[in-house]
Amino acid sequence: MGGKQHILSVLVENKAGVLARVASLFARRGFNIYSLAVAPTDDERFSRITVVVDVEATPLEQITKQLFKLVNVVKISELEPAASVERELLLCTVRADPAVRGQVIELVQIFEGRILAVGTDVLTVSLEGHPGKVDDFEELIRTYGIVDLQRTGRVALPKLVRRPPTKALRVS
């Protein structure tokens, strides 16, 4: 991910049609979405949309301002890659004839992925990790022949800032 993409964490009201409103806004303003992940938060009234936007064509400021005009959008935070933790999940069914199966399994193990299902000449594997790592894995696994591949798009939260405790920790 270069400087042309930014991650926005968008807290929205958990109401019908909110995703459509966000998607429609991007479409009509000509903003480009690179990836988008949406799910409810711990507070059931709200969902979080993690959207990776292409800021080459439109300044990020204009995108966030327009997004914020949507009545159901409660909060928008920009997540700097350096100041956030990002994760993405990849599922992949890959060709694994007996002749190469060992190599595929080894590759999955190196990347700390998991084998989810085993067929006669295919494997379904999963990999969770930083999007860059997932990119690398995808590039390597591709050489064996992909049957199906699905990535979730990235999700992210701000990195915790470690400060010395201001008060003595209470020991129970």
Partner: peptide
């Protein structure tokens, strides 16, 4: 009053 107009 619309922040999105500033700098658009």
């Amino acid at each position: 009053i619309d922040p999105a107009e500033l700098g658009k």
